[in-house]
Computed example of a mutant assay.
Amino acid sequence: MLDVTLRDGGYVNGHSWTTREAEAIVRAVGAAGVPYVEVGYLREAHQPHRPSASCPPGYLDALAAVADRPQLTVMVRPGEVPVSRIAELPGCGVSMVRVLVPGGAVATAAPYVEAARATGLAVATNLTRVSERKQDEIAAVIAACVEAGAHLVYLADSNGSLDPETVAAQVGAATAACPVPVGFHPHDNLGLAFINTKAAMAAGATAVDASIAGIGKGGGNLRLEVVVAHLIVRHGADLRLDPIAADQTTLATQLRMLADGTTKAVLTGLLDLNLDGAAEFDDLVAENGYDAALLTLSHR
């Protein structure tokens, strides 16, 4: 299990976590027994008040110093940071790099995978927007990720559009064809993150992403407290719920996500629209309301 509160939850608060808040989240996740925590994006440009947006060395050093912490993970989007920066990460306490594979472009991700392996880091690749892809296309990209050297391959439901049947089919096909572990990154646009995760696990996924209170992009993520409780009760997992339930660090961000509302997230999930490219949807809603936007886009 990997906690994505800081990285994916950063979309809700503009990555404005303070280092002290990040330390508290890492501490709570570690006390819960979750083995990995993703602390942000690795990028070149640093803004002092947005450390999880770029993971500057001082921020990583502070999180690495947290006692009894999980293993630290950073996410890399190819092109946003020089490949040479990967070599710095082990010295900052990072154990794993996750490399995005947007559009299935494994060739752009491969140099980062190679660099991570060369420094002794675990490396995962994240195939995004899998709801937009056919199973044979997913299988081909996964095979290329494995050939590039990925230790773990994630399928990401970026649009929050998948249902349990589709998740089971995609993950099942991936695990059947893949010699390395397969992970699942759910979003909760349609309220299906938990049941989709159960379907992914039943189909062979052995890695799962979640965040405290489900905070994250769009409709949010799988709720960490829900999946932790499920694994304790149904699978006897050596995890603890109290540290997550007791920590109040994310409360303001939870309220911000609630205040932003969920209508847009639900509808973009239903229409299988990625929020990064949903400008047309926003324009249609602004001009004519949700009903007109639904009718226009659903007939395409």
Rank of each mutant, 00 (worst) to 15 (best):
D3I: 00
D3L: 00
V4Q: 11
T5C: 09
L6D: 11
G14N: 07
T18R: 09
A22N: 07
A24T: 10
I25W: 03
I25A: 06
G30Q: 08
A31R: 15
A32E: 05
G33A: 06
P35L: 09
Y41C: 01
R43G: 06
Q47E: 15
P51V: 12
P51T: 12
S52M: 02
S54N: 08
P57G: 05
L63T: 08
L63R: 10
D68S: 15
P70W: 13
Q71W: 10
M75W: 10
R77N: 11
A87I: 03
C92F: 13
C92S: 14
S95D: 11
R98V: 10
P102S: 01
E114T: 15
E114Q: 15
A115H: 01
T119K: 13
L121N: 00
A122W: 12
T125K: 06
T125P: 04
N126Y: 11
N126R: 09
N126K: 00
R129N: 10
E132Q: 14
R133W: 12
E137A: 13
I142A: 07
A148Y: 14
A148E: 03
L155I: 10
L155K: 07
L155F: 04
G160Y: 05
G160R: 06
G160F: 06
A168W: 12
A174F: 07
A176Y: 08
C178G: 11
P179I: 02
V182R: 09
H187L: 12
G191W: 09
A200R: 03
M201V: 14
A205L: 07
A205V: 03
I212C: 03
G214F: 01
G216W: 06
G216K: 04
G219R: 02
L224W: 00
L224K: 05
V226Q: 04
A229H: 01
I232K: 05
H235T: 04
G236L: 10
L239R: 09
L241D: 04
D242Y: 01
P243H: 11
P243F: 11
A245T: 14
Q248C: 13
Q254P: 00
R256D: 14
T268M: 15
D276M: 13
G277P: 02
A279P: 01
A286Q: 07
A292P: 02
T296P: 03
